[in-house]
Design a protein around this nucleic acid. Structure first.
Lengths: 230, 230
DNA sequence: TCAAGTTGTGACAAAGCTGTGACAGTTTGG
DNA sequence: CCAAACTGTCACAGCTTTGTCACAACTTGA
């Protein structure tokens, strides 16, 4: 059974979350501060963590960083709305998604499912399809519309695979760097170059990209169904 | 035209479904077992799949899992009533919605529409909506009436997000400054400029603002439902 | 009425970000 | 072992964003 670690110092909210997720058939582990959360994580190795940022003592960022240093356990952050910096920081640290409080049970369940699905998808299967892009990761081949096909380099393949896995979401620069080169390698210059090379390989008009969009100051995203006339 | 793949081994029911959906203007692809369904999916890449769970050989869950491993094609499951486990299992595998048999044509059409709409809005994008303004903070994009869309800068996004969060309430100048620049940064000049720039970007007539109102001596507020002739 | 403060507006420059080309070191494949 | 491909590094131009300032119009209160 899928185990979910829920971490929130607001006990009422934590109970609500636990109740919601239990009803969906998940097994719930509860923590109310960062320290016990880390202990619990280490002992139980849950399949996913739902993590509030504002925790006493060890805060959510610390927990996130610590977990990411040791494993890939998916993490969903709980943040207050309009704290954009928290969200970006969290995603930079490797969180997989976030939910802004207040949220509905349905939203929560949907996110948990989506993140779990992405996590399981990332492993197995050799190819994935998004819009008219089909990426064969094992052979590093990209076909567009079953017509043109390109051979990608290893880095290009990793970047595009990650973008496709998170299609239509904007990935922060640091998150991309971490996923392509691993933590604490790679820098922004390298990512810029990589994006540039990937674009000039796959975009019909590389200076007016339709697949890979830039969100200045934030990062990049893959557009699933691009308008032709963009 | 929107392509729908209908998979059901009950040929009578499959035909009824196909008929119903065709009448709504959709293009229908039919399969009666899992194997041909997967073939059909891979070749045709339909926009959505209506999938019965109880299929011979490869069952609906398998089909669902296989599709999800490669793409995000929306899936609606057909289940028999009271099989809650089936539903939960299906949703865990990434199905987008479900309908319990028996169902009416109207239900089916409504679900299909709903799922397609959600999918086109790329699922659970966390945007906030106030009146006819919709702000997607993760992209820093503002759409008005689902028609025009503007790209905002980081500061503009933070300001507008805060105003929308407190729509119809007047925010004091200092509160705004604190929320946009953080405590003890920023001054009134900067806020004045920011308001000015935001207005000239989103207001139809920037010198007669209808969205962002000025309350002299106090601050600014966002008007949720502006009169056109203001 | 007048003075002080507030607001809208335009101009400008500094700082930062992004796309781009070039080049060299490294890896890969034959 | 060589050539080709891949990758990291750097510089630079162009653009956007942001802070700063000046000034005119307006409001307010004594």
């Amino acid at each position: 059974m899928t185990k979910i670690l829920v971490v929130d110092d607001d006990r009422v909210l934590a109970d609500v979350i636990a109740f919601t997720l239990r009803r969906e058939g998940y097994q719930i582990l509860l923590s109310h501060d960062g320290e016990t959360a880390l202990q619990c994580w280490e002992q139980e190795l849950p399949d996913i963590i739902v993590l509030d940022i504002g925790l006493p003592k060890i805060d959510g960022f610390e927990v996130c960083r610590h977990v990411r240093a040791h494993a890939n356990t998916p993490i969903i952050l709980l943040t207050v709305r309009d704290e954009e910096d928290d969200i970006i920081h969290g995603l930079d640290l490797g969180a997989d998604d976030y939910i802004t409080k207040p949220f509905s049970p349905r939203q929560l369940v949907a996110r948990v499912r989506a993140v779990l699905r992405r996590a399981s998808q990332s492993l197995n299967e050799p190819w994935q399809q998004v819009g008219n892009l089909r990426l064969d990761s094992s052979r590093r081949e990209l076909s567009i519309d079953d017509a043109r096909t390109f051979t990608l380099t290893s880095l290009e393949n990793r970047l595009l695979g990650y973008l496709m896995l998170n299609a239509n979401r904007v990935m922060t620069i640091d998150a991309l760097i971490d996923h392509v080169w691993g933590p604490a390698r790679g820098d922004r210059d390298m990512l810029r170059q990589l994006i540039h090379r990937l674009r000039s390989k796959i975009e019909p008009d590389p200076s007016n990209p339709i697949y890979i969009e830039t969100v200045p100051g934030l990062g990049y995203g893959l557009i699933a169904e691009p308008d032709i006339d963009d």
